[in-house]
């Protein structure tokens, strides 16, 4: 299976888009070699702004740039680009529907070594709760490229979550990315599994395992976590014996909440695989952390069996 690094894809795509669209500018808080906007800086030194280690200012400066017609991409680790400047995103950006793109890099547990301070288990929840904010989480490099383009085309506040490590390609290059529309990655009839990010791949692994046991999973990529087309979700759940959500972030305020909200009143049993209400910690490997926090195909299989009971 081909693997790509979403950060690298993001950095490269932004340069490609920057060539065609002079409005695009990028801001960094001393992490451009991690966020990969170092590529943008190299290509367009005048349109890249080093903002020093000051994320709150960076977000509001981006708002000023956007208010003057630019399309600013604000870059840092998710904990610093979404968490630290929450109020700036709220006031400078979201209330006025200002066209700022927040990039949450090294998101989820993907910055495995750095520990709880650097692992964004909460970014999805805090970005989703903001009115006017669109929240994206690509499943792979293919989708990352499509999303960055969509971010330029869409006028308004957006947040994109980018993982630090290489992830397998799971989406179809030919499928058009539409904001808000979940897409079926693998069809099946028994259980509908909603996932985002790298967890889409984990759901596919679970589907392989369960297929051998005679259980068929429909794996759905919910790469826009807000807005979510409710009719599409309901349709994808129609006739299912159960629903399972999978996400590399807190069980509070993420995909589990979103799907439960849409499916409220339905008799279909539901289970959630997510980071329980805890912070992360250091590990020597991403997968090791995912296992520790129960974000594995094994846990998905267990969740499926639970809803089938």
């Amino acid at each position: 299976m081909n693997k790509q690094n979403c950060r690298a894809v993001y950095g490269k795509t932004l340069v490609e888009l920057g060539m065609k669209d002079e409005r695009i500018v990028a801001l960094d808080a001393d992490l451009c070699k991690s966020t990969m906007t170092c590529l943008f800086e190299e290509a367009f030194p005048d349109r890249h702004f080093e903002m020093g280690i000051g994320e709150q200012n960076m977000v509001s400066v981006a708002a000023g740039l956007a208010l003057s017609g630019k399309v600013p991409f604000v870059n840092s680790f998710a904990v610093f680009s979404a968490g630290r400047p929450y109020d700036q995103i709220r006031v400078s950006v979201c209330i006025g529907e200002v066209n700022v793109k927040i990039v949450g890099s090294s998101a989820g547990l993907s910055d495995f070594g750095d520990g709880a301070t650097h692992q964004s288990i909460d970014d999805i929840a805090i970005m989703r709760v903001l009115p006017n904010m669109v929240v994206l989480s690509p499943a792979d490099g293919i989708e990352t490229a499509k999303m960055v383009k969509a971010m330029v085309d869409h006028d308004g506040p957006m947040y994109i979550r980018i993982l630090r490590n290489d992830v397998p390609d799971v989406t179809d290059p030919k499928t058009e990315f539409k904001i808000g529309v979940p897409t079926v990655i693998r069809d099946g009839k028994d259980i509908t599994v909603f996932a985002h990010g790298y967890m889409v791949y984990k759901a596919l692994l679970a589907a392989d395992i369960l297929e051998k046991e005679g259980v068929s999973l429909k794996v759905v990529n919910v790469s826009t976590l807000k807005p979510i087309d409710e009719d599409v979700v309901k349709e994808l759940c129609a006739g299912a014996k159960g629903i399972v959500t999978v996400e590399e972030n807190s069980i509070i305020g993420g995909l589990a909440n979103a799907i439960a909200m849409i499916m409220r009143g339905s008799a279909i049993p539901m289970e959630a695989v997510a980071v329980k209400d805890v912070f992360g910690q250091s590990a020597l490997d991403w997968e090791e952390l995912l296992v520790h926090y129960g974000l594995t195909e094994k846990e998905i299989v267990a969740a499926v069996k639970k809803v089938l009971k």
Binding site: Q56, S60, V61, A63, G64, L65, L67, S92
Partner: peptide, 24 residues
Amino acid sequence: EANTGSLGQGLSVSCGIALAGKLD
């Protein structure tokens, strides 16, 4: 020109507007 009210953000927004003016 901007939404303010949570104090301390206006100068940053102004910097962004001023930077855009220089760019353009």
